[in-house]
Amino acid sequence: MTLMLITAILGVISIIYCLISVKLLYRYINKYRFDESKYTMLFGFLRLRYIAMAYISLIIVLAVSSTVFVYYITL
């Protein structure tokens, strides 16, 4: 139970850190905007918002799955 709690806390901290990072990122890029239509995207298709969405979703998936995994192995 303790280990599951530790994993859950780690997951929550990880998600909060991810959300703060994305918030800081958008605050900065909204303040200092560039005309991205004139810029060749990373690998031709990757925009910053795809990276931000992938970041948030992967962190949430990892936090949830690792908590569930540790819960079941400690049962």
Partner: peptide, 18 residues
């Protein structure tokens, strides 16, 4: 404990990459 350490390492590298 090794399981938690591995989870921690995965989380750290994921954050580092993004």
């Amino acid at each position: 404990v090794a399981a938690i350490v591995i989870v921690g390492i995965f989380t750290f590298f994921l954050h580092k990459f993004f």
